[in-house]
Simulated assay, not measured.
Amino acid sequence: MSTLAKLRTEAEAAAELKCSVAKLRKLRAAGRLAFMPGRPVLIPEAAFLKLQHEEAEIAYARWEKRKHKKRGTKPPNPNEDPHAETRRRAILAWLRHRGPVVLRHLAKPAGRRTRT
């Protein structure tokens, strides 16, 4: 692969991040985004992916902060397993299939068991 295939212009990066070019310029000025100076300004793929991950974490943290105030669409947590919900549903379906015996066993408090 050539080096040019791994570089993006500011406009391309802004379109993929769904933000403005001005925001990317501010991020560059703040030192949060690596770039290659010139005309046009080019952004390396690694720096773009790092910024994309950081922005996802910021969006999730912002949502976590306001979730008790307002219910909204939850952005995906970048640190969470994407298949955890599917696994949880499969386990619950298996438990329902197994019957109330397993659920009763799980509902008992841990510690000393007494005979009745």
Rank of each mutant, 00 (worst) to 15 (best):
S2H: 10
T3Q: 14
K6S: 04
K6F: 00
R8Q: 05
R8T: 02
E10A: 12
E10H: 00
E12T: 12
A14H: 00
A14C: 08
E16N: 15
L17P: 11
L17M: 10
C19A: 02
K23F: 03
L24P: 01
R25W: 00
L27I: 03
R28M: 11
R28A: 09
R28N: 03
A29P: 07
A29M: 03
A30G: 06
A30W: 01
G31A: 06
R32H: 10
R32K: 15
A34V: 13
A34C: 07
F35S: 11
M36P: 03
M36D: 09
R39G: 01
P40C: 13
P44N: 06
F48M: 04
F48C: 05
F48P: 01
F48N: 07
L51M: 14
H53L: 12
E54P: 05
A56S: 11
A56W: 04
I58E: 15
A59P: 01
A59W: 00
Y60L: 12
Y60N: 12
A61P: 00
K65G: 02
R66E: 07
R66D: 07
K67W: 00
K70T: 09
K70P: 00
T73R: 15
K74H: 06
K74E: 14
P75T: 09
P78T: 08
D81V: 04
P82K: 15
H83D: 04
A84G: 10
E85Q: 14
T86N: 14
R87P: 11
R87M: 14
R89E: 10
A90N: 05
L92G: 08
L92F: 04
A93Q: 14
L95D: 01
H97K: 13
H97G: 06
R98S: 10
G99K: 01
P100K: 12
P100N: 09
V101Q: 15
L103W: 04
L103S: 13
R104N: 15
H105Q: 09
A107H: 12
A107P: 07
K108G: 02
A110F: 00
G111F: 07
R113Y: 01
R113A: 07
T116C: 06
